[in-house]
Write a protein that binds this DNA or RNA. Structure first.
Lengths: 223, 223
DNA sequence: ACTAAAATTTAGGCGTGCCTAAATATGACC
DNA sequence: GGTCATATTTAGGCACGCCTAAATTTTAGT
């Protein structure tokens, strides 16, 4: 029996395990989930006994195929829900992460399918993340962090971190949303603010904010 | 802190507590929730300590105003969800009870409002039950049980029990759905089947089924 | 009123998932 | 290679919500 808590752990590990072969340390999971490291160890033991992940004591964990499959389903639920809440129900994009975090564990497969149909089987959620297919296909492109882009560059926003509602409201206010064209006009030294030109207007944005925005470099003359 | 389990108990007691002053016995709650009587006693103790219900040992429980308010919110969630799932998402009416039972505990107030708006602030769910308003107003009309209607009577279906998917599929197949006009043509003795005329066709329906259908007597010449 | 059956509560136990504190393993630096 | 800081695991405890079995109260019948 898979509990909601187990699903949450599998999802967290899945999202933290960037490289396919990468092992995720206990402490990283603990920090991400706001629980103690001891709690993570306890849950890891159980998930390992269910062969949903492999655990080398003191050396982190890696999902098995079975574990990844479950995690991917949860992520699919989450991202479909986010999009459904925004597109069909009219939620603002800052509220949907929290709502989806609760709903993702309780909706049925039929609910998932109804959402996918209503949305035309989408592949990208409101924050720019790829929605895994029902078969588990997922090519999550890895973009560059806006905070680390050189001054003078032209970029297109592709993803934003969705965990902090206030941040999302701020980004929406600036127009820093997936699809937006941005020029990095200047970067202040010592982790100072970036000067960004968005829709013709210049805005000064802190590094911390710019670390939550992921962009693609615009090729010269690119549309 | 109100847990999902507490909400489930409050909802059950609310639904079982027909008369306003009626006390609901432990055993009735236990049977309705498919848990042991001892479990009910345990939970009752906690809910009583939170002043969500009053408990006279050995003499059943009655919700306080606070408890009723929470129960009513859960029931509102449940019934709005059922209607939303049928009307907006295209679920068949036999599946929505189970889905709503899970979702009712996790949706936000905003989710509730979005549903209510999308549905035009409805007052009746797909099975004919009244949806409590946000303020907690609710006049649940009590109808008569189809199984106990005398032969020869004309009735209109108003409500059906929603707990058994297979029963709902059967009822839908017969056309025994809220709004349907039905004549009780005959009743076999010894708890035997009823002969019902529905949309011009006669059907023989077991008593057990007819106990799940609630009807209003049609006044002569009533539209 | 007394007794037996039924309903209810108490007692004790289990699995889940969290915590803190203590023990232990790792890895980096000298 | 030893030592120390850090990461991780173990140990022990707690709240929740469920269970069965035993004790208790209510109730109905004689």
């Amino acid at each position: 029996m898979i509990t909601h808590a187990m699903e949450d752990y599998l999802k967290a590990i899945y999202l933290l395990q960037k490289g396919k072969e990468e092992k995720v340390p206990t402490s990283v999971i603990a920090q991400h989930m706001h629980v103690s490291a001891a709690s993570v160890t306890g849950m890891i033991r159980k998930l390992a006994s269910m062969e949903l992940l492999n655990h080398n004591s003191y050396h982190g964990v890696k999902l098995t195929e079975g574990g990844e499959k479950i995690a991917q389903e949860v992520v699919r639920h989450h991202r479909l829900l986010e999009l459904y809440l925004v597109e069909i129900m009219g939620f603002t994009w800052d509220k949907v992460h929290h709502e989806a975090d609760k709903l993702e564990h309780v909706i049925s497969e039929e609910f998932e399918e109804k959402m996918a149909e209503a949305l035309g089987h989408p592949t990208i959620d409101p924050h720019g993340h790829t929605i895994p297919t029902k078969e588990g296909n997922l090519k999550e492109t890895s973009y560059e962090i806006l905070a680390e882009i050189d001054a003078g560059s032209f970029v297109t926003v592709r993803q934003v971190n969705d965990g902090i509602p206030e941040m999302l409201r701020y980004l929406a206010g600036l127009g820093l949303i997936p699809g937006a064209r941005v020029q990095v006009v200047a970067k202040a030294p010592f982790n100072g603010p970036l000067c960004l030109k968005i829709k013709g207007c210049e805005h000064h944005v802190g590094r911390e904010v710019a670390r939550n925005v992921f962009v693609e470099m615009s090729v010269q003359g690119n549309d």
